[in-house]
Amino acid sequence: MLSSAELLNFANSHGIPLWAMDAFIAALIALGLFAAMGLGFMVQVYMERKVSAGLQLRYGPIYVGPKGSLQLVADALKFITKEDVFPSSAEPWIFRLAPVVMFAAAFLGLLVLPFGPGLVAKDLNVGLIYVLAIPSIGVAGVIMAGFGSKNRYAILGSLRAAAQMISYEVPRSLSLIGIIMIAGTMRLSSIVDGQGIWYIFLQPLGFLVFFVATMAELNRTPFDLAESESEYVNGYHTEYSGMRFGFFFFAEYMSLFAAALLTAVLFLGGWHGPGPVILAPVWLLIKVFGVIYVLMWVRWTFPRFRIDQVMDLGWKVLLPMALVNILVTGIIMSV
């Protein structure tokens, strides 16, 4: 499946069975992605703390390491060594599996995202639908977390989160149809190649709908009804602590990174930029962290919506806007 001719020869000459070779390569890619995400996680959490502190005229972490940059290492040690609290009324297997499902959904979403020309684990020709479909497994994880905890706050939070994620999946998917129409493909690398002009300029309305829907999909403020601390403790992960909470935390920032990467690939010209090809991943990363910065900026600037406002925005504003975008794109393309 993955083997090239050289690897095939190597396997034959050393008597390694083909399936073991394939499995080894797949495991290697998964580990590489995991390591990259771990690094990205640390950078993002540090960035979130510093950005939020800057916007609120605070210092943020300053004690651990230079300018507080090793704070997350200390936090990770705390997560790992903390007591594993297990609520006595929880459903044992559902409670245990929920963080795994969330994590797996977030991790699987990265599989088709290109990090540079040719730098992609699997360049599916249905890549665009894939990145939209995989987060819906995460919805099941949210419901599992709420139901498994057997806690009223957790159940309410999980129902809200799931309702919100399902509602915003619709405008989010529809807002990208304009891009599919212009690019004529759903392969993410081909979409990047086709961007002589960035699609943000050709699809401004589509970008607006996609960006707002992405914020809602990530459950970040102003859409953080799922874990609104002032209303019900912490939403669906109220009962989780220690490393189990760490998994939710990791999955959340992995989804954030994936969403920012998808935005950069679809609307901001992906890895295009001046300079030699070797700089392509650098340009992409600059764009990704720019998008992440904007998302954090929004998060720490605006207050939270009410649940009815969230639903109204999704169904009565974003959905018609996405449909109008498709219509306008179609008319302009046929003229």
Binding site: Y130, S136, V139, I166, E169
Partner: peptide, 13 residues
């Protein structure tokens, strides 16, 4: 992918 989208993301949820 449609199986995941429609059945897991829609029907089961």
């Amino acid at each position: 992918i449609m199986q995941v989208f429609v059945y897991v993301g829609g029907v089961v949820v």
